[in-house]
Amino acid sequence: MSFTWISSYWPLLLTGAWQTVSLLVISVVFGFIIAIGLAFAQVSGGRLTRLLARGYCTFFRGTPLLIQLWLLYYGVGSLLPMIPGIRQSLFWPILREGFFFAAVSFTLNYAAYEAEVLRGALLAVPKGELEAGRAFGLSPWKLTRRIWLPRAIRIALPTIAGEIVMQLKATPLAFTVTVMDLYAVANKVRQDTLLVYEPLLVVTLFYLALTAVIARVFRGLEAQVPVRR
Rank of each mutant, 00 (worst) to 15 (best):
S2N: 13
F3G: 12
F3L: 15
F3Y: 15
I6L: 13
W10I: 12
W10L: 15
P11D: 07
P11Y: 08
L12G: 09
L12C: 04
L14K: 10
L14T: 11
G16K: 09
A17H: 09
W18Y: 10
Q19Y: 06
Q19R: 05
S22R: 14
L23C: 07
L23H: 03
L24C: 02
L24Q: 00
S27F: 06
V29S: 03
V29A: 05
G31Y: 01
I33T: 02
I34K: 00
I36H: 00
G37K: 00
L38N: 00
L38M: 00
A39H: 01
S44C: 09
G46S: 08
R47K: 03
R50M: 07
R50T: 06
L51N: 06
L52M: 10
T58M: 11
F59H: 13
F59N: 13
F59I: 15
G62E: 04
T63H: 03
T63V: 10
L65N: 08
L66R: 02
L66G: 05
Q68L: 10
L69E: 03
L69T: 09
Y74H: 08
L79C: 00
L80A: 05
I83S: 01
G85D: 07
I86F: 02
S89V: 12
L90S: 12
F91A: 15
W92D: 01
R96F: 07
G98T: 10
F99H: 06
F100H: 06
F101T: 03
A102T: 11
A103S: 09
A103C: 06
V104P: 04
F106V: 10
F106M: 13
T107Q: 02
L108P: 01
A111M: 10
A112Q: 07
A112Y: 03
Y113F: 15
E114Q: 14
E116K: 10
V117Y: 03
L118M: 09
R119F: 13
G120V: 08
L122N: 02
L123F: 03
V125C: 07
V125P: 05
G128P: 08
G128F: 05
L130Q: 04
R134I: 14
A135H: 07
L138I: 01
P140I: 00
P140T: 01
K142F: 05
T144H: 01
I147R: 00
I147S: 01
L149V: 04
P150G: 12
R151T: 14
A152D: 02
R154N: 11
A156N: 04
L157A: 12
P158T: 11
T159M: 13
E163T: 13
E163S: 13
I164R: 00
Q167Y: 02
K169S: 14
T171G: 04
A174F: 02
T176M: 02
T176K: 00
V177Y: 03
V177M: 04
Y183D: 02
Y183G: 03
A184M: 08
A184S: 11
A186C: 05
N187V: 15
K188G: 11
V189H: 01
Q191S: 15
T193F: 11
L194P: 12
L195G: 09
Y197G: 12
Y197M: 15
E198V: 15
L200G: 15
L200I: 15
L201E: 08
L201Q: 14
V203F: 14
T204D: 05
Y207N: 01
Y207H: 08
L208Y: 10
L210K: 02
L210V: 14
A212T: 11
A212N: 06
I214N: 05
F218L: 01
L221P: 02
A223E: 05
P226L: 12
P226D: 10
V227Q: 04
R228D: 12
R228P: 08
